[in-house]
Design a protein around this nucleic acid. Structure first.
Length: 438
DNA sequence: TCTGGGGTCCTAGGACCC
DNA sequence: TCTGGGGTCCTAGGACCC
């Protein structure tokens, strides 16, 4: 949620203004840019493995498709209403996101890239009368240059800008921009925001608060500090201040390097052979190590986990993970694979139907200067770095996995399902949009 | 039959030290 | 038989986000 201040009076910042720019139904909007047949018809985008619905067009929302619902549960509604279904195409969405963010960065350097489809902007240099006009200009620019529609919420705190943004989406007459900096009907607005929809309050706290008759953002704002601190700690307290218009969560402008990097996937089918799990774990380690080198980091620990399908109650269950601390920080793929496979062999048990596995690289430190372990033999770091650089650069030029480590397998028939994938229109020469002029 | 992936922060409790 | 107190560090687990 960004840098946070403790709740002491002096540290809470007043007179701050934030704009939250959020792409509408982002994944669906990305698909529509390249396939106009998807306009004005219901569309959903599925998560990895075609598991859950993770994006819905307005038409699909209207048909009762909820966020995060497993695909198989709504297959009936989808088929009977002819809802278009797409597997998620993260290469495409990532590239479109970059275009949107680059445009936003031209408006102000004081920007926090919050997620793939959202950014907070500092509005301190905009004069009070111009907030809405500024928001409209942002909207126009993004749409014109990328085809992605966005909503803009403007408020004194990040939490309130989230609320303004959400309100925009349900009120078309606002034309995509809502400024609640000095909103006269704030009480009424907050009273209509259900407690579990407040940023920072999720399912568990939401249920606890509802049991205590704290039902809306307004109820929470007006609840006792002592109660909130006691039940929710300082995170809850910050949210209360934010709802009061006191900024307790600051703008995080700098993209901090990740402290941990994970790669994990559900399999396209059950896997029970050790050799297949080893392939998968090798593949995930390759992916995680690529990300690690991209941020010029080395990790000090590796965690490997495997799990069976906990939804399937008739199956024997096994979920386990193990961590190893490395003798020295590393980002050399073959070495990381060696440790990861070692860990896998410790936790693997034959006779189980595994559905998911993953690798977590932890305790990440900058690549240089690396703390070398003086007691270890010289491992020729230079040579290793050159090998990894060469591999990364070949894969960047010729496409992912052009050059790879053999232990990850060739066929990978355990890999995830993506039956409805669209093309990588913007990042692969072989998959450009073709226009039929006949 | 079919239920995502990748992160962050906070807190409580144990180990250890003086 | 009596069995401190306070600090730090680490880890696991729980909560949250998109």
């Amino acid at each position: 949620m960004g840098n946070c201040y403790l709740g002491t009076e002096s540290e809470i910042l007043k007179n701050k203004i934030f704009a939250l720019v959020d792409c509408n139904n982002f994944y669906v909007s990305c698909e529509r840019v390249f396939n106009p047949k998807l306009n004005n018809v219901p569309v959903v985008v599925l998560s990895n493995n075609d598991g859950c619905v993770v994006a819905r067009s307005e038409e699909a929302k209207a048909l009762g498709i909820t966020m995060g619902i497993p695909y198989f549960k709504v297959k009936g509604i989808i088929e009977s209403n002819n809802i278009r279904v797409l597997s998620s195409n993260y290469v495409l969405y990532g590239d479109m996101s970059e275009r949107v963010m680059n445009l936003l960065a031209k408006f102000t350097p004081n920007i926090e890239l919050y997620s793939i489809d959202e950014a907070f902007l500092d509005m301190k240099d905009i004069s009070v009368n111009d907030y809405t006009a500024y928001g409209k200009e942002i909207r126009k620019t993004i749409f014109k240059n990328t085809g992605i529609p966005v909503s803009v919420g403007i408020a004194r705190t990040k939490t309130l800008s989230k609320i303004a943004n959400e309100y925009v989406k349900h009120n078309p007459r606002l034309n995509g921009v809502f400024d609640i900096v000095d909103f006269p009907k704030m009480d009424k607005l907050l009273a209509h925001v259900p407690i579990h929809e407040v940023w920072g309050i999720g399912g568990a706290f939401g249920r606890m608060l509802m049991n205590r008759k704290i039902l809306s953002a307004k109820d929470f704002r007006d609840a006792s500090e002592f109660f909130i601190k006691d039940k929710m700690g300082i995170i809850g307290l910050r949210t209360k201040y934010e709802l009061q218009g006191l900024s307790a969560v600051s703008l995080d402008e700098v993209l901090e390097p990740k402290k941990a990097i994970m790669s994990s996937r559900s399999f396209g089918r059950y896997v029970n052979k050790q050799c297949e799990l080893e392939e998968a774990i090798s593949q995930y380690t390759i992916r995680a190590a690529e990300k690690l080198r991209k941020q010029q980091g080395c990790c000090n620990s590796i965690n490997v986990f495997v799990m069976t399908n906990h939804y399937k109650l008739t199956d024997k269950q096994h979920a386990e993970n193990k961590t190893i601390t490395l003798p020295e920080p590393a980002n050399y793929t073959p070495e990381l694979i060696k440790y990861a496979v070692y860990l896998l062999r410790k936790i693997y048990k034959p006779g189980y139907n595994y559905i998911k596995a993953g690798v977590l690289l932890g305790n990440i430190v900058p690549e240089t200067p690396v703390q070398l372990n003086a007691f270890l033999v010289n491992r020729d770091h230079d040579k290793r770095n050159r090998i990894m650089k060469a591999m990364d650069s070949i894969n960047k030029t010729f496409g992912r996995d052009s050059l790879k480590v053999a232990s990850s397998g060739i066929a990978q028939d355990w890999a995830m399902k993506r039956q409805h994938i669209s093309q990588r229109y913007t990042t692969n020469w072989n998959e450009l949009l073709t226009v039929n002029l006949t």
